[in-house]
């Protein structure tokens, strides 16, 4: 037992040192419940910067002159604070996705050791309920066939959750 202690300590030291030495490591972000692995993300004092190409790939949002947009949805960036969100270099444009989450009141959960970031529901998504319209979703049945709640429009729906646990 005693003999194995230094090996264990060495291993712990190695594990602590490796991530910063090999930075940037692979980062995983989960957006709209879909996970995307990024190879060029940068972390800076709790802030996550990703390339605008990765932003589009992971979230479908794009930085446009009018704001950060996806389909009809557009969040303008405060003019005086552009540099908090977008940083252009000759090779690549960086986007601070954590600052954007803060702007749109989106909770972020982070696991530093696993380099994984989870982006929750934005406030516009959370406010759907107060409109009294049933929030829409698409989920698969046992055969994997997707069903969308709004496909049942015109019928009464009894929506019931259950679980095996």
């Amino acid at each position: 037992m005693k003999a194995s202690m230094p090996c264990g300590l060495l291993l712990i030291l190695l594990l602590t040192v490796l991530p910063s030495a090999a930075n940037p490591l692979r980062t995983t972000i989960v957006y709209d419940d879909a996970a995307t692995d990024l190879t060029s993300a940068r972390e800076d004092v709790g802030q996550l910067w990703i390339t605008t190409a990765d932003l589009k790939r992971a979230t479908r949002f794009e930085v446009k002159p009018q704001g950060v947009c996806r389909d009809e949805l557009c969040f303008p960036l405060p003019k005086a604070r552009q540099q908090e969100f977008v940083h252009k270099t000759p090779a690549v444009t960086w986007f601070n996705i954590t600052a954007f989450a803060d702007l749109v009141h989106q909770p972020v959960a982070h696991d530093a050791a696993m380099a994984t970031w989870y982006f929750g529901l934005r406030s516009d998504q959370r406010q759907q309920l107060s409109s009294l319209q049933a929030p829409d979703f698409t989920l698969p049945d046992l055969q994997g066939k997707p069903h969308r709640l709004s496909d049942f429009r015109g019928k009464k729906i009894l929506l019931v959750t259950w679980a095996s646990w």
Binding site: L129, L132, Q133, A134, D136, L149, S150, R153, G154, K155, K156, I157, L158, L159, V160, T161, W162
Partner: peptide, 12 residues
């Protein structure tokens, strides 16, 4: 189990 009733117009 949690149930929600949704009418024909998609309203809770």
């Amino acid at each position: 189990p949690t149930g929600v009733w949704i009418n024909e117009q998609g309203r809770i």
